[in-house]
């Protein structure tokens, strides 16, 4: 994500957003090529999305074209032709502004928003406890809105956990929520928030954005570590603590995954620094219901 943190001006950033939309178009094209209405065309049913093949599925619903391209089995799912409300929430806390995580989060968000727009869903961007509907004025408006979020967030950073918990006040039940965050707040509180939102019937896509230094830290010696969110500090001898750190981080991630998979109300997508947008989008599609 190094190049993302080195973007010189908003024009370069806008260019990156456009590339993200193109990337999402390509992926979507690859995924959706061959999709058509079902035989019960009279019914108001419509292709919803893909999910991975599991033993017992009807082979009639396997999308063979996708299989030929991606060598993966995807089952086409159809649903009543009903618009979903998708809410995209990006973490604007201070920790996201290190190592270009925030820009990466915005790029993914743009791509995901575009995908949902293509699927004819109502897409809203959540920013400062307000929802902004995008899509009605084309992709230019989406890019402009995301760019506004970028510019505003540079000046005023928010508390991710509070804002995410307050989502329930402004979104209807049974919505789809996409969260783009490094999730670095109190782990137990984050787990509780995710659990609460799941419990209210919402479906959550959690894009966990991490840089290499956070996934596999290699710092040594005596360090004064500062948490950019809470500004709390810690002096620590770093030589041999990282194994336990990684275990704790995995434990945290597993807890989140558990909540989402157990309730079948969401999906966790780990977005490490070296993972391309294309791969992230494929991961998004892989088991999407």
């Amino acid at each position: 994500m190094e190049f993302l943190s080195q973007l010189k001006n908003s024009l370069e950033l806008l260019d990156e957003f456009r590339k993200a939309i193109v990337e999402s178009e390509i992926v979507l094209e690859e995924i959706l090529s061959g999709i058509h209405k079902s035989k019960s065309g009279g019914l108001d049913v419509e292709f919803l999305d893909y999910r991975g093949y599991v033993y017992g599925d009807d082979l009639r619903f396997v999308d063979w074209k996708v299989f030929l391209k991606s060598e993966r089995f995807f089952i086409k799912r159809f649903e009543d032709n009903k618009r979903n409300s998708v809410f995209l929430f990006v973490d604007t806390s201070a920790s996201m502004f290190h190592n270009g995580k925030f820009v990466k989060a915005l790029l993914i968000m743009v791509a995901i928003a575009n995908i949902f727009l293509r699927l004819k869903d109502d897409v809203y961007l959540i920013f400062q406890n307000e929802k902004v509907k995008v899509g009605e004025y084309g992709e230019g408006y989406l890019i402009q809105t995301v760019n506004d979020i970028y510019n505003t967030s540079k000046e005023a950073r928010g508390d991710f956990l509070i804002q995410y918990t307050q989502l329930l006040d402004i979104i209807p039940r049974n919505s789809i929520i996409c969260l783009f965050s490094d999730l670095f707040s109190d782990p137990d509180s984050v787990v509780n928030s995710v659990n609460t939102i799941s419990a209210t019937g919402n479906f959550q896509y959690i894009f966990h954005i991490l840089c290499d230094d956070e996934l596999n830290p290699t710092k040594k010696g005596l360090r004064l570590l500062t948490d950019p969110d809470s500004d709390s500090k810690l002096i620590i001898q770093c030589d041999n603590i990282w194994e336990e750190y990684k275990a704790e981080l995995n434990n945290y991630i597993n807890k989140l995954k558990e909540i989402l998979t157990f309730s079948e109300k969401g999906k966790y997508i780990l977005c490490p620094e070296n993972m391309s947008l294309r791969d992230i989008l494929f991961s998004f599609f892989e088991t999407t219901k």
């Binding site: 920790s95 290190h98 490094d182 670095f184 707040s185 109190d186 782990p187 956070e214 830290p217 710092k219 360090r223 004064l224 570590l225 500062t226 948490d227 950019p228 969110d229 809470s230 709390s232 810690l234 620590i236 603590i241 750190y245 704790e248 981080l249 945290y252």
Partner: peptide, 10 residues
Amino acid sequence: NEVFSPLPIV
């Protein structure tokens, strides 16, 4: 001195 976001995990 160093900024380290995953401090809550640490």
